[in-house]
């Protein structure tokens, strides 16, 4: 069976030393570029776009809410993919990646719930309702917290990370539920506005969203790299201590 083109690239990155060599200069680049794009998007969204015909200025929260929702879900997709990679190839970097994504993923899922609630009060007339979209997103937030606790418990017990990886795959059950909850159920949350090919948001309102989406995504990637490097450094330090203790 011939290997697909991306396999050599993944193998090259899977070498921790080479990964660190690339990650070190990449981290500040992603971080500052992400901050700059997100800041420009927020400024443009607050000053350069018209208000919505019904919601007025409350519409401007989409420039934060949509990126946080996307990253909350993309984060779990990353955990699921890394978990599969770890279970199949047993590569320690995949385990480190999954663990590194959990904290920023939980943070953005939580921000998504908070910004949605702030938007819901003036628009719907309620802070919170148990509708399909809101409930499934809250579940994803709890699943993130459970995953972090499970990783911690597995580490403390000296586990090999297989149980958190299985949890990482099982947790992806929520992703299609969140995505299709507004399609298949009656929900208070509106249907999908932004698709791959079309959108029901007027371009004059939407364009800063592209900047905040790209900006927060790069920022998220930078946080993941920082945490991966910290986890690798921590593992190295621990190994050195253990070597010293046995000498």
């Amino acid at each position: 069976m011939p290997k697909p083109w991306f396999v050599p690239a993944i193998h090259a990155l899977a070498n921790p030393a080479r990964f660190l060599k690339i990650a070190r200069p990449l981290t500040p680049l992603l971080f500052w570029l992400g901050i700059a794009l997100a800041a420009f998007g927020c400024w443009a969204g607050l000053t350069q776009t018209p208000p919505d015909y019904l919601q007025g200025d409350a519409v401007r929260i989409i420039y934060i809410h949509v990126p946080t929702a996307w990253l909350g879900m993309a984060g779990w997709s990353g955990i699921a993919i890394s978990s599969i990679a770890y279970l199949v190839w047993r590569h320690p970097l995949a385990r480190v990646a999954a663990q590194a994504i959990a904290m920023p993923g939980a943070l953005f899922a939580g921000l998504c719930l908070v910004t949605g609630s702030i938007w819901g009060r003036p628009t719907w007339g309620t802070w919170w309702q148990w509708d399909g979209r809101l409930t499934s997103m809250l579940l994803l937030f709890f699943v993130y917290l459970a995953y972090m606790a499970l990783v911690r418990a597995d580490d403390d017990r000296g586990g090999d990370g297989r149980i958190p990886a299985i949890f990482g795959i099982a947790g992806s059950v929520l992703l299609p539920i969140i995505r299709y909850s507004v399609v298949w159920w009656n929900t208070l949350h509106q249907g999908q506005s932004i698709g791959l090919t079309s959108s029901t948001i007027a371009m004059s309102i939407m364009w800063p969203l592209f900047f905040t989406l790209a900006g927060f995504t790069l920022f998220f990637a930078a946080i993941v790299l920082i945490r991966m490097r910290a986890l690798i450094a921590g593992a190295k330090a621990e190994a050195r201590l253990r070597r010293k203790a046995t000498v």
Binding site: Y53, S193, T200, I201, S204, M206
Partner: peptide
């Protein structure tokens, strides 16, 4: 609210 957002 529906999924449409547009200027006044």
């Amino acid at each position: 609210h529906d999924e449409k957002y547009m200027p006044p």
